[in-house]
Every structure is written in structure tokens, then in C-alpha cells.
Amino acid sequence: MKAPDFDYVRVRSLDEALAALAAHGEGARILAGGQSLVPALNLRLLAPEILVDIGGIADLSGIALADGTIRIGAMTRHADLERSPEIARHVPLLARAVREIGHPAIRNRGTIGGSLAHADPASELPACVLALEARIVARGPSGERTIAASDFFRGLYETALGPDEILVRIEIPAAAAGERFAFHELARRHGDYAMAGIAALARDTGAATLRIAYFGIGSRPMLAAGAAAALRDHGASEAGAAAAVRALGADLEPQSDLQASAALRMHLAGVLLRRALKDLFPDAAGGREEEIA
């Protein structure tokens, strides 16, 4: 199918973009890389009046390190993250995760801002920013505000962004010495959205700062706070791991779909957690394991 009729404007500045949003209200949609929006239009799941293309706003893309924080512009493409030496050094979890997004053609167009704003529960980056304790900066008619990643994802394709707001950048604390991460996902085919995935981060060598985020399990990316607490209490020993896996029952709300049943997803969440622990705490949990995605 083809998209329903819509108007299109390519804006040159954020102010212009905000003005367009203000003028059209709910009828306007921001167009970033178009890799989620255009398919949704073609399937006629959406029928906006006007697309506001923010691809021409130069200062929305780019990666910069200052004061121990990495700032990533919303229009930064997945492929730029993939190739960036700063990301590889200071946010290795993102560098690892971004490789799993679709295929090269999609990564060449798709943007980090679009991925977070779209909030597909099976997407990699939303879970990563949860694990990374990122701050998401949005700009609206009354200026900028910063939203903690943990407050950002509200439900299926639902975020804290208002219809008059634009996601402008993501701020992530740069990796400290001794920081470790784990990333695993299971999918039906190469390049598919995940049927279950985990992104986990420990800011130091112990479990005290551990954050575990899941994607592809429920209706939104989710932090497994109970599991993290169990690991803080018991350490990453077998007993700790077992307690953490048990705690997932309360942390997650797995859903059934064409790719997997809810019961299988819950099981996979446990398997992925144990694998993540092996990456994060190789001494306690014993060696990394090979994966068949």
C-alpha cells in the first residue's frame, strides 16, 4: 500500500520545527530517519496531516564528550553510532547494541532520537538508555526539559514526549573505569526485532550499581529492579542468580505474540539474565557462553 495524503515541510531550525508543531497540533508528525514512520504510513496505521522533516537541522546530529557526559544529537544515525570511536570508548554498550538493529540500509537512515521517540518495545536502544541511566532532553514551546530514561517510556509506542515537543539529544554518563556491560538478544531471523533481549550495565566491578533492562518482552522496555536488588543482596553467585531469576516474575510482564508466547518469554528472560551475569561477573558466574540467536 501507499501512504495516505499528507503535507510535508523540511525545516531548517528547531524554532521552525516547533512552530510547525504548534501550528498543526496532533496533526503533525516529526519525520527523522523515516524507518518506522514511513512503514507505518504505508500500512495506513497513521494518517498525519503534515510531516515535519527535521533532517535538515544541522545541530541535531553529532556526538560530543564534555564533563564526563556523552551528548548524542537526536538525528544521529544508527550507522554513525556504529562507527563512532567516542561511542566505542565511552558507551560500549550502545556500540554493541546498535549492530543488532535491522540491516545496514536501515542503520544508514534510522536515528537514535527516532528510535527512542518511537518506543518500540522490541527495539534495542530504548532498553540501552534505561540501563545507561541516560537523560533525554526535549524541547517544547517553553524551552528545554530533561527526562530521566526511566520516566520516558510509558507504554506501547508511548513516551513522556508531548505532541508539541521534539527530542533534541540524549545525555549519557561516559563509562568509568571498571564499568562492564552485557547485551544479548534472541530473534527469529538475522536483523529482526528481538523476541527477547537484555541490556545490562554495572558501573563498577560489583553488583551495587547494576541496572538490567529488557526489550522484546513486554509492552515497553523495562528495568528489572527486583532482579538487580536480589543481585545486590546476594552477589552474582549461583544463589544470587537464582534469586534474581525468581525476582523477574514480579519485574516483567511478558506478552504473547506471533514470535513467542508469554511463558517462553519469561523463561528466555531468565536465560538471558544468567548469560548477562556471566559477562558482567565472569569470576562469580563462570565464563562467557556462545549464543545461537
Binding site: P39, L43, H103, R188, R189, H190, G191, D192, L258
Partner: peptide
């Protein structure tokens, strides 16, 4: 039919 599109009906890609 619940998966009548190539997004949900999965044919092998070159990588598979």
C-alpha cells in the same frame, strides 16, 4: 490471517 505482510511473515534473507 494475522501475519499477512512481509514484516510478520518471515522469509529467509541472504543472512539466513
Amino acid at each position: 490471517l494475522t501475519n499477512g505482510s512481509l514484516a510478520d511473515y518471515k522469509i529467509p534473507t541472504l543472512l539466513d
